[in-house]
């Protein structure tokens, strides 16, 4: 079965089995990256307009449907998660996240290199769109209190209190990981989700502030905890606000003034 999270040692033991994708900016990649990794910045993925264009992006860097892929980044796994989710969405189910960020990898003394790695273009990438993992604005707009769906806002608490999509509850992306790993253990995640009454038999839709990165991480946190019925509202609150759809605000307290930031 596919692994959601790969730890550094596991990866190093199976270097030939995986294509490693560095989702950071190209400049950062050039300054040093994990051994064997190829560069595919999130921006390139976000630029693609439809599944066919997306498939072409992956094909051109040498990734096809059946390849086993590991993605990493240097911002808490959020960028990597969004790239991984995209790959999953267009029909590659063999994608995993590296358990640590690039900085952590380096600080652990694992191998990095500066050499620019290129793979041969893949022969083809057959697009098999997995609509079950994508939520659109219309879909989210149809959520009500009673239809057994949970809408999960992954932004930080103050942003959530300020304004959010109606019916959403909030688990900050910062509650998903810890200092050692971009995601806590499945047991810890399950315990937290259970306390919050987020049941495994419910459908869960994650969203965040702009392009589905933090919520992409939440998507994989849920998967890692053993949840199966999850969707990402990839265009998230940015689109929602642009469409002028209803929002819930909390104006009875001046909570921003309590922040030291």
């Amino acid at each position: 079965m596919r692994k959601i999270i790969i730890k550094p040692k596991e990866l190093l033991n199976k270097l030939d089995e995986y294509i490693i994708i560095d989702a950071r900016k190209e400049d950062e990649y050039k300054e040093g990256h994990i051994i064997n990794a190829i560069s595919l910045p999130l921006a390139r993925v976000l630029d693609a307009k439809d599944p066919n264009e997306l498939a072409e992006v992956f094909r051109s860097v040498g990734v096809s449907n059946d390849d086993k892929v590991v993605v990493y980044d240097d911002i808490f796994g959020a960028i990597a998660a969004r790239v991984a989710w995209t790959l999953e969405y267009i029909g590659n189910d063999n994608v995993s996240l590296l358990s640590v960020t690039f900085s952590k990898w380096k600080s652990m003394g694992y191998k990095v290199e500066k050499r620019i790695r290129k793979r041969k273009e893949a022969k083809k990438f057959i697009v098999r769109v997995n609509d079950a993992i994508l939520a659109t604005a219309d879909y989210v707009n149809a959520i009500s209190k009673t239809n057994n769906k949970i809408l999960l806002d992954s932004r930080e608490r103050l942003n959530y209190l300020d304004a959010h999509i109606p019916h959403a509850i909030n688990i900050s992306w910062r509650a998903l990981g810890n200092e050692d790993s971009i995601l806590k253990s499945p047991e810890e995640l399950r315990r937290m989700l259970k306390n919050r009454k987020i049941d495994r038999d419910k459908e869960i839709i994650t969203y965040c502030g702009s392009v589905g990165t933090l919520s992409g991480l939440a998507y994989y946190a849920l998967k890692y905890a053993g949840y199966e019925n999850i969707k990402l509202y990839a265009k998230s609150f940015k689109e929602w606000k642009a469409l002028q759809l209803p929002i819930e605000e909390f104006k009875n307290a001046t909570y921003w003034d309590l922040s030291a930031e």
Partner: peptide, 25 residues
Amino acid sequence: EAFSIGSVHVSTRQNIQMHWIYLDD
């Protein structure tokens, strides 16, 4: 960061307070 507002508050009775935590957390 994980469960409150990313900062804590020192009270006049030397407690530390964390605000806006979900009851279930």
